[in-house]
Design a protein around this nucleic acid. Sequence first.
DNA 1: GTCTATATGGCGATAGAC
DNA 2: GTCTATCGCCATATAGAC
Lengths: 227, 227
Amino acid sequence: MIPLILERTFVRFLLMSTVVNKKLRGEVLRQRVLETALELFSTCGYFNTSIHDIRREADVSIGSIYHHFGNKEALAKALYDELLERMDAGLREVMERERGCRARCDGIIAFMFRAATDDPRTMRFVLESRHREFLPDEPPVCSSRPFMRMRECIEQGIASGEVCPIEVPVAATAAFGGAIRLVQLHLDGVLEKPLSRYLASMQDAAWRAIASDPPAPAKHLIKETEE
Amino acid sequence: MIPLILERTFVRFLLMSTVVNKKLRGEVLRQRVLETALELFSTCGYFNTSIHDIRREADVSIGSIYHHFGNKEALAKALYDELLERMDAGLREVMERERGCRARCDGIIAFMFRAATDDPRTMRFVLESRHREFLPDEPPVCSSRPFMRMRECIEQGIASGEVCPIEVPVAATAAFGGAIRLVQLHLDGVLEKPLSRYLASMQDAAWRAIASDPPAPAKHLIKETEE
DNA sequence: GTCTATATGGCGATAGAC
DNA sequence: GTCTATCGCCATATAGAC
C-alpha cells in the first residue's frame, strides 16, 4: 500500500510534468464534456442544447470543445458510439454468461431493465432520440450492434428449435418489443412501480410469444394461400 | 330609390359572400400548411424544418402561417392533435366493430400496420418524433388517447378472463410492443417484405404473450360466419 | 386574410493569444 | 491544449401595406 502522502506527491508530479499533464487533463476534459453532453442531450434533446450550454455546465471553454470534437454533430456521434459500445459490451457479457435461448432472452431483458433504472440517461439517448435527425449518415438504431445481437439470439433459438419458426423480424420484435416499450413507459415516468417489479412477468410474456414447446402450435406450418 | 330592406339584404349578401370566400380560402390554406408541415416534419424532423421551408413548399406567405397558427410550436401542436384524433377515430372504429379481446387486439394491430403502410408520415410523426422536445407541456405519447384505448382493451380482456391476470402495463406492452416495434422497423426501411406479410404471425405472437388459455386458436385462419 | 420587408437574437464556428 | 472575444448567418417572429 502506498502512503497517501506519497501518492499525492506522485499525482502532483504527474500533473506538473507538462507532457503527461496536458494529455491527462485533455482526457479528463474530454470525458467531462461527454458526460455533460449526455446529461443535456438526454433531458433537453440535441437541438435544445447549445454548445454554450455544454460549455457552461461542463465548465470548460468553447475552444476546448471544438478542439476535441470538431463540431457539435461529431460530439454527438462520439457520445452515441460510446454509449452503443457500452451497451453492446453488456449484451455480449449476457450472451457469454447464459446458455440457451430462454436464459439469454431473460438476461437481455433484465439487462435492459437494469440499465434503464441505473442509467436512464443512456437508455433515453439510445432509445428515444431520433439520431437520424442530427446524424443523417447514421444507420437506424435497430441495425446497430446491440440490436443485431438481440436478433442473433433469436435466430439461434429458431435454429435450435427452442423458438418456433416464425419470421425472424416478427420473433425478434415479439420477444423484445414489449420490454423495450415498458422501458419507454418507465423513462416517461408513467409506471407506478419500479421496472424490476415487472421483470419476471415481462420475461414470461416475452417467452410465451415466441416459445415453440408449450403448446407446439402448428399454425405457421399451414401453407399460406397467396392473395 | 331602392327599398331599404332590399339594399340591406344585398349588402349583407355581398358581405357574406366575401366573408365566406375568405373563410374558405383560409381553411384551404390552413390545411395546405398542415399537410406540408407533416411532410417536412416527418421526413426532416421538427428542428430541421424552418418556417421558411414550410412557406416555400406550401406556397403561402410567412404572414399567413403566423396568422393561422401563431408560432411554430403551435403549428406542430395543431398537427399533432389532428393526427392523434384521426388515429383515435380509427381505433374507436375497431373497438366498435370487433367483439372480444382477441379480435380487438388483432384489429388494433391490423389498423397500425395499415396506417403505417398507407400513411407512413403520420405514423412516423406520432411514433417517432420526440414531441416533448418541441412540445414541452405535452404529456408523453403513451398517455395519449389512442394508447389509452389500447390499454383499455387489455384491461377489459383481463376482466373477462380472456387475458391472463398479469400487471396491466406488462400485458399492454407485451400485446402491442412487438407490433409497434415492427412498425418502426418498417418505417426505418429495414424490413424485406411489406408489413402485411407479417400481420398474421405478429397477431398470433402478441396473443400468445397474453392469452390466458394456452392453446390459442389462430382465429384469423378461421372463416368468419355471419351471426 | 394575405402579403413583403425587416428586426432581433442566438446559434455554430473561428481567430489568435497564451 | 486551453482560453476569450468575436464573426456571420439564419432562425423565429413582427410590422404594416393592401
